[in-house]
């Protein structure tokens, strides 16, 4: 069991940038594309070191996705970079046909996902991207929780043959997973064992789940906290193993409750072992401007919201 100690706040996008640079050094075939957001995506280190393998596409995301598919046909491993909003909804048809249906080895790397994008407001705060991507056959969906995990997930994506959607964010958040971790696509990670409730969390809300776990412990509730960095394929075995022990679940994610991790888990449970479940996420609303912390609080995705959800679901537990 790992210790979950904050090694210092860092942004997940920098974990991506660092890994991309490392991949550039280790593999000649890794190429990167960016639609005018090189600095925001932390791709500048790769772009500076490997100018012949970096393609600036300008503000033309649809073209970028197609070019990436073409580079994959030419034997390259392309990583595209732009905000999550422009990585998914804007180019859905390109991804669907030229990447997913064509089964091209393209890594769609999306930064500034979720409400914690903050002050720019709802136009840029996409909360639907996991749903859009997980519905596509052939697509792997990964939403890492901190700098170290994003770094490891980026490297794992390069080693996976096929389309991957890799989602990360803008703010500096606690970096608490091991620096030397090996990321396994499709594997859940038990952060804390417990017997009263399973908290399944992904992305920035994993740290919030750990904080909630401590509060709950004070209240006499022993929560099992499981990090699900891969949303598709879903680690059904780990989820079921935990549920058979705790008999109730809370999901936590920075995403709409429709189409996210919570929906995937609720479907799994409904099909296999109907279990009381509460979802912490965005309840069918668009966001607004504010700081990341304010917004998580306002829209019900803070530490206290996870605590409340646990209290609600443990009360509903079948005895």
């Amino acid at each position: 069991m790992q210790k979950n100690i904050n090694q210092g706040n860092k942004d997940t996008r920098s974990g991506f940038g660092e890994a991309l640079f490392e991949l550039g050094k280790s593999s000649e075939n890794v190429v990167a594309l960016c639609a005018d957001l090189t600095g925001s995506l932390k791709m500048d280190k790769f772009a500076g070191a490997f100018p012949d393998r970096f393609f600036q596409t300008g503000i033309a995301e649809a073209n970028m996705m197609g070019i990436a598919a073409g580079l994959a046909i030419g034997g390259k491993i392309p990583f595209t970079g732009t905000f999550a909003n422009f990585s998914t909804g804007r180019v859905y048809d390109q991804i669907r046909q030229s990447v997913a249906y064509s089964n091209k080895n393209v890594k769609i790397c999306a930064s500034h996902a979720g409400i914690t994008l903050g002050e720019d407001g709802a136009t840029h705060q996409i909360m639907e991207d996991i749903g859009l991507m997980k519905m596509l056959p052939n697509m792997v969906v990964i939403n890492p929780c901190d700098f170290n995990q994003t770094r490891a997930a980026t490297i794992a994506s390069a080693n996976h043959c096929g389309p991957v959607y890799l989602r990360f964010g803008r703010p500096k958040v606690p970096n608490f997973t091991p620096p030397d971790q090996k990321f396994e696509i499709g594997k859940a990670i038990v952060l804390k064992e417990g017997r009263d409730v399973s908290i399944f969390a992904t992305g920035h809300l994993v740290w919030k789940a750990l904080e909630a776990g401590e509060i709950l412990f004070q209240k006499g509730i022993d929560a099992e906290i499981i990090n699900l960095p891969t949303i598709k394929p879903l680690d059904g075995d780990s989820i079921m193993a935990s549920i058979l022990k705790t008999r109730c679940a809370v999901t936590a994610e920075e995403h709409q409750i429709f189409g996210g991790l919570g929906e995937s888990i609720s479907g799994l449970l409904a099909r296999n072992f109907p279990t009381p479940l509460e979802m912490v996420g965005m309840y069918d609303l668009f966001g607004q401007s504010g700081t990341p912390a304010e917004l998580l609080e306002k829209f019900g995705m803070g530490t206290n919201d996870i605590v409340s959800a646990v209290e609600l679901v443990t009360a509903r537990k079948h005895h």
Binding site: F55, G66, D93
Partner: peptide
């Protein structure tokens, strides 16, 4: 409207 972008990527790879 998608094929030309893919062709650009292929020509870049070549």
């Amino acid at each position: 409207g998608q094929g030309l972008s893919v062709a650009v990527g292929m020509a870049l790879a070549a």
